[in-house]
């Protein structure tokens, strides 16, 4: 597989380490009333789509960026690659 790194262009997936669903970016608020339940859902509940899946890849053999890769789990077609830091900021994780 090739991952089209937003900064570096297409790079072999062998340079990356896979972690899992990009929902891991959305870590719950530890002070929420139902924080425990939220963390259980965060830690253990995952979608398992047949089709587009947003997932986290770490460019360990490269620039050490975490990426959010949108990959079709059936065809492996990759439709979008973003720096996870940008995604995290967009999704409200700024301090």
């Amino acid at each position: 597989m090739m991952i089209d790194h937003p900064t570096l262009g297409p790079r072999d997936a062998a340079e990356f380490v896979y972690m899992g669903c990009a929902s891991l970016i959305n870590r719950p608020d530890w002070q929420a009333e139902d924080a425990l339940q939220q963390f259980i859902d965060y830690g253990y509940q995952r979608d398992n789509p047949s089709g587009a899946h947003r997932e986290l890849w770490f460019h360990e053999g490269g620039d050490r960026s975490w990426l959010v890769v949108t990959r079709d789990t059936v065809t492996h077609a990759i439709t979008q690659v973003e720096l996870a830091r940008d995604v995290a900021r967009r999704e409200g994780r700024s301090k």
Binding site: T7, L8, D63
Partner: peptide, 17 residues
Amino acid sequence: DPARVGGKDLTAFWMGP
């Protein structure tokens, strides 16, 4: 820039963002 090296007496190469 990303994936580049440059400089004179001192040189530097890009490592990451």
